[in-house]
Design a protein around this nucleic acid. Structure first.
Length: 209
DNA sequence: TGCACGATGGACT
DNA sequence: GTCCATCGTGCAT
């Protein structure tokens, strides 16, 4: 514990620096990081980068709106959006102020508070499926529009429940491939995951219509 | 003011 | 593998 404090401070600095940089580097650095909301903690195993400057699939590509505002603000804030009329998706804003970019958290392993996560997800959901997929991930953590804009690096309380992003303790292997479920800028290999990790989401080749 | 369309998940064949 | 529920958002009227 005596040596732990400087190492922890260094890890926090490395995470902040990565988030303030480009979304691809941020998406890589977030693999292995832990998002903690109250009793539930999630180890991130799959991410996707979205960069409004060059990326037609990014919500920020057409500029700042009420919805996308937080993507254009400081790095390390939670960008939450509602998808398909029923799912919430969690993203971490990155890059410098004025640059609309974020990293989508696609999947993770619930490492604390499994029973709380299962209360939200349903009694028959396996541990593996608790947060395997963007909609499942937010449901397991209990994240929704109330958490829009939360400062994940400083840590904040929403409705009395603390929400915080903790840096990883070691760098995992990283695999790269095309993003899932989008119809534009499909060639950018901006999906990142921990190879072989059983909590990575199922690969769904881009379909639609 | 209207409306097409998802950065999906779950149920079902 | 296929189907479809469901609604906020942004752009077209």
């Amino acid at each position: 514990m005596t040596d732990g404090e400087p190492a922890a401070a260094e890890a926090r600095t490395r995470l902040r620096t990565a988030l303030e940089g480009d979304p691809v580097g941020a998406a890589r650095e977030l693999l292995g990081a832990v998002l903690r909301h109250g009793p539930v903690a999630l180890r991130v195993v799959e991410t996707e980068a979205y960069d409004g400057r060059v990326d037609e699939a990014s919500h920020s590509f057409r500029g700042e709106t009420d919805r996308t505002r937080v993507m254009f603000g400081p790095a390390g804030r939670l960008y939450v959006y509602f998808s398909y009329g029923m799912h919430w998706a969690a993203n971490v804003s990155c890059s410098e102020v004025g640059h609309g970019a974020a990293v989508l958290l696609r999947a993770g392993e619930v490492i604390d508070g499994v029973e709380f996560a299962r209360d939200r997800r349903g009694p028959r959901v396996t541990d593996r499926d608790l947060a395997r997929g963007p909609g499942r991930l937010t449901q397991a953590l209990g994240i929704d529009r109330r958490h829009y804009g939360a400062d994940l690096l400083a840590g904040t309380e929403i409705d009395g429940v603390p929400l915080r992003l903790e840096p990883r303790t070691h760098a995992p292997e990283v695999a790269t491939g095309p993003r899932v479920g989008i119809s534009r800028s499909v060639d950018l290999p901006w999906r990142f995951w921990i190879p072989g990790d059983r909590y990575v989401s199922a690969f769904r080749p881009g379909q639609r219509r």
